[in-house]
Amino acid sequence: MDKEKIKINPEFYDIMPVEYQELVENATYGKEDRGWKDVGSSKELIEEHSLCAGCPESIAFRHILASLPNPEETVMVGSTGCTSLVFPHIALHNIHSLFGNQNAVASGLKRALAYRFPDKIKDVVVLAGDGATVDIGLDMTLQSWFRQEKFATICFDNELYANTGGQESGLMQKGFVGKMAPAGKQFEKVDMPGLAKTSGCHYVAMLTSSKPNRVEKVIRNAVLIAREIGPTYVQIYTPCILEIGKQMMEGLQEMRDSEGPGQRFEYQEFITDEAKAYMEAKHPKKKRKKKRVEEKKVD
């Protein structure tokens, strides 16, 4: 998709529903400094969705879509789960893969795009739940990292299989009793960031979606590093409020409670020297802005 192609034929402009007119006029395609602060002042790439009221995943989705550096040239690959209910509603190319196959599909897609459009930057971003990433699709996830496939993998970690009723997943915390896991989890939560580091990811981050600034920074890093250097992995806690017995307004607090010092979603970030050098050389923009502010303060 190219921004130039996102235009309504003038003969039909007046009859198009207003959300499409807004998408053309007021969406942030082609804007290099796009970010979460555009939410509310410009047309978002996510429309009405079918997630539960108050679902933290919908907040994460909004912030991620607002943070993609190059949405008009990005293809997202999803998998079975709550995320697959949202993908049909986003103004971005996306592919729904079979359950767990998302990293294998993304590998082929990224290579095909590089072959078909050698002169264009095409980003591929996998976004799937913990069931698809860590349980059913663990093989495909790890193999894509071993092969150094150049795309970002984002895992929405809600610590269980949410839309099928609360079965135990590899990322469920030890001892948690789910609606469909009455005996309680017997094993530790899989250390997926650790696996990502040892499997060859050049950038790894674990966070919640409670801080949009942080989500923006992490997503931007993950996509840009994956574009040139190699695989990246981001794990975001998006609690399923229904399955952990919370009310719709309690999702944000649940994320805040889980990211404190020593908690299981305490912020972690890892970047290889190669990726760090690349980011400093090629994408120093935001850092420069910060420097200018510091210089002014000194003056």
Partner: peptide, 22 residues
Amino acid sequence: FPGPLVLWGWNENAEQKATAIK
């Protein structure tokens, strides 16, 4: 009922079809 292939001006042919449909 015009569909996406003619509503959006994604190539010259689509633009010409839009004119004809109108």
